[in-house]
């Protein structure tokens, strides 16, 4: 038997296992390789630690810095130029108004678009592919550009709404619609075809099938998408900067045509102030905002796990 012949190796393995010394042959990874593998896994753990630590430090830093102002007065005090009296009430009410209208806009529009793309257009149709590509692109347009769109077309002519709650809602709705559409499509796609066929076979029309069978089955997925979109809309600051949200609002916004401020804008305003007291306020307000977003994301995850059905 020549060396290199597969029979050689096989014979050796057979002999080795017969003698009970197999480990020598099977553990033949070169030493350098083993060391390199160990170093590599250390690097991987370091990367993971950096990412997780980054999040932890971000939260802790704000918690420690904002601790002196984390009290109920932070939520009930209105805007003030004196840091000791300043609070988030106007900003929170503004955010509630804005997000309320965002929800009213994105649920029908987003779900409608997803139903059209998934149930009516068919994945091979040219229109559907064009719209899908367009939605993917819109999802990645920088948010400040939506702000400029809002400034040019919604706050001023042709819509000419001015710098009010509804302008912010419309702009943010356009910004987060792609998220709703993409997630709602995934949810609709997960409903098996047999559900539709069963309904159609019983004589239901296409819309009756969608309305009574497909949509109810897809609700958890759609709700997850809507919540994700809303939490994005709550945290977005850049598009509101050109929309003239007056950051010094001494009244509470009280309707769609009221001037307003919003949570992230109030934080931005405080971050810009030179006094250290305002930095403390900003840190405390960030904790409030992170708490709100964390709660919403937890609900989304819980919804997904609770109602996820495997077909």
């Amino acid at each position: 038997m020549r060396p290199g012949d597969p029979r050689t190796a096989r014979a050796e393995v057979a002999l080795a296992s017969a003698r009970g010394v197999g480990t020598e042959i099977f553990s033949s990874q070169p030493r350098a390789d083993v060391i390199r593998a160990a170093a590599f896994s250390v690097a991987l753990y370091a990367a993971l630690a950096l990412a997780v630590l980054g999040l932890a430090v971000l939260v802790l830093d704000n918690l420690i810095e904002g601790a002196p102002r984390l009290n109920p007065a932070l939520l009930t005090n209105g805007t003030s130029s004196l840091p000791a009296n300043a609070g988030l009430r106007s900003a929170l009410i503004g955010t509630l108004w804005i997000i309320g209208f965002v929800i009213v806009l994105i649920v029908p529009l987003g779900v409608g678009a997803a139903v059209f793309l998934e149930e009516y257009a068919g994945s091979r149709s040219r229109v559907a592919r064009l719209i899908e590509l367009n939605v993917q692109n819109l999802a990645a347009v920088p948010s400040i550009i939506y702000g400029l769109l809002g400034l040019a077309f919604i706050a001023r002519a042709p819509l000419n709404l001015g710098f009010v709650v509804l302008t912010a809602s419309l702009t943010l709705a356009l910004l987060v619609l792609p998220v709703v559409i993409l997630v709602a499509r995934e949810a609709l796609r997960a409903v098996p075809g047999s559900v539709r066929e069963g309904s159609l076979a019983l004589g239901a029309t296409k819309w009756q099938t969608i309305r009574h069978q497909v949509l109810p089955a897809a609700v958890p997925g759609i709700a997850t998408g809507v919540i994700l979109a809303i939490s994005r809309a709550i945290g977005e600051t850049a598009p509101l900067v050109p929309l003239g949200a007056a950051t010094f609002v001494t009244f509470d916004p009280n309707g769609p045509f009221s001037r307003y401020t919003a949570l992230p804008l109030q934080i931005f305003d405080w971050v810009k102030q030179p006094q250290a007291e305002f930095q403390t306020l900003a840190a405390a307000a960030i904790i409030v905002m992170l708490g709100l977003l964390l709660a919403m994301n937890s609900v989304a995850i819980w919804l997904r796990n609770r109602y996820e059905r495997s077909w």
Partner: peptide, 24 residues
């Protein structure tokens, strides 16, 4: 366990990252 933890970072508003840069 770890994947959602890392993805939480994506949910942090940018204004909070800006303040983090400045203050930490």
């Amino acid at each position: 366990l770890l994947k959602p933890l890392v993805e939480l970072l994506a949910g942090v508003p940018t204004v909070a990252f800006g303040f983090f840069a400045l203050s930490f």
